[in-house]
C-alpha cells in the first residue's frame, strides 16, 4: 500500500472514531435526559443502542489491527494507531456508563424523583463537552487543547461532591429516600468517571504528537475513592 492509500485508511479510521465519539456523546445526553424525565422508553433505547457502540468499537479495532499487520507502521503512524485502539476502549467504557445511567432510570421506574435533577444534567453537559473537545484535539493533533481540558475535570468533581452532599441530606431527612438517593449517586458517579476517562484521551493526544506518556491528572480517581468523598 503506497503512502497515499495508508493516509486514506488512517483518515477513514479517524472518521470512524469520530462517529463512535458522537454515538457516545448522544448516549450520555440521552441517558441523563431519560433519567430526568423518567422516560423509560428512551432509557431502553439507550440500552439497546449500546450494542451498536460496541460493534462500532470492534469494527475500528479490527480495521486498526489490519492496518498495523499489513503496513507495519512506525513512529507517529504507529503511535496514532495505538492511540486509536486506546481511545476506542475509553469510548466504549463511557458508553457503558451511559447505559448504566439508563438502567438506573429503569430501576427507579415511575416512582417520583426525590428531587428535580439539576446538577446531574450539568455534569453530563460538562463531561460531554469535554469529550467532544478531546476528540477534536485528537483529530487536530492539538497538544495545547489536550493539556487544557483535564483541568476542567475539577468542575465535574465539584458538581459530584455537591450532588453527594445534597443526596446525603435527603437520606438523613427520610430513610425512605435511601434507595433512590443511592441510584442517583451511582448515576453521578458514572458521569464523574466519564470525565476522568476524557483525561485518558487527552493523554493519548499528547502521546500521539510527542511520544511522551504523561499523567495529566495526578490525583485522578482520588475523588472517586472512599477517602476522597466529602466527610
Amino acid at each position: 500500500m503506497p503512502r497515499e492509500a495508508f493516509e486514506r485508511e488512517l483518515q477513514r479510521l479517524q472518521d470512524e472514531l469520530l462517529t463512535l465519539g458522537n454515538m457516545v456523546e448522544e448516549a450520555i445526553t440521552a441517558a441523563v435526559e431519560s433519567l430526568r424525565h423518567q422516560d423509560l422508553e428512551a432509557a431502553q433505547r439507550v440500552i439497546d443502542k449500546d450494542r451498536e457502540i460496541n460493534e462500532q468499537r470492534f469494527a475500528i479495532e479490527r480495521d486498526t489491527l489490519i492496518l498495523i499487520a499489513t503496513q507495519q507502521p512506525m513512529a507517529s503512524d504507529l503511535r496514532i494507531l495505538a492511540a486509536i485502539l486506546e481511545i476506542t476502549t475509553e469510548l466504549e467504557r463511557m458508553g457503558d456508563y451511559a447505559k448504566g445511567i439508563a438502567k438506573i432510570c429503569l430501576m427507579i421506574g415511575e416512582e417520583p424523583l426525590i428531587k428535580p435533577l439539576i446538577d446531574i444534567p450539568r455534569m453530563a453537559d460538562k463531561a460531554r463537552d469535554m469529550l467532544h473537545r478531546a476528540l477534536e484535539a485528537f483529530l487536530r493533533q492539538d497538544v495545547d487543547q489536550a493539556r487544557a481540558i483535564p483541568t476542567e475535570d475539577d468542575e465535574v468533581d465539584a458538581l459530584y461532591q455537591q450532588v453527594y452532599r445534597e443526596l446525603m441530606t435527603y437520606i438523613m431527612s427520610d430513610p425512605h429516600n435511601i434507595e433512590q438517593a443511592n441510584y442517583l449517586l451511582w448515576a453521578a458517579h458514572n458521569l464523574e468517571r466519564t470525565a476522568d476517562r476524557v483525561t485518558n484521551i487527552c493523554e493519548r493526544v499528547i502521546f500521539t504528537v510527542t511520544g511522551e506518556m504523561t499523567e495529566l491528572n495526578e490525583d485522578e480517581g482520588r475523588s472517586t475513592s472512599v477517602e476522597g468523598l466529602p466527610a
Binding site: 503512502r3 495508508f6 507502521p73 512506525m74 513512529a75 507517529s76 503512524d77 504507529l78 503511535r79 511520544g211
Partner: peptide, 17 residues
Amino acid sequence: LFTNPRDRRTEDYITGR
C-alpha cells in the same frame, strides 16, 4: 528510534514519506 524518532528526516523515512 522506531517509535519516536528525534529527527524529522528519520520520521519521514521510516514512515515511508
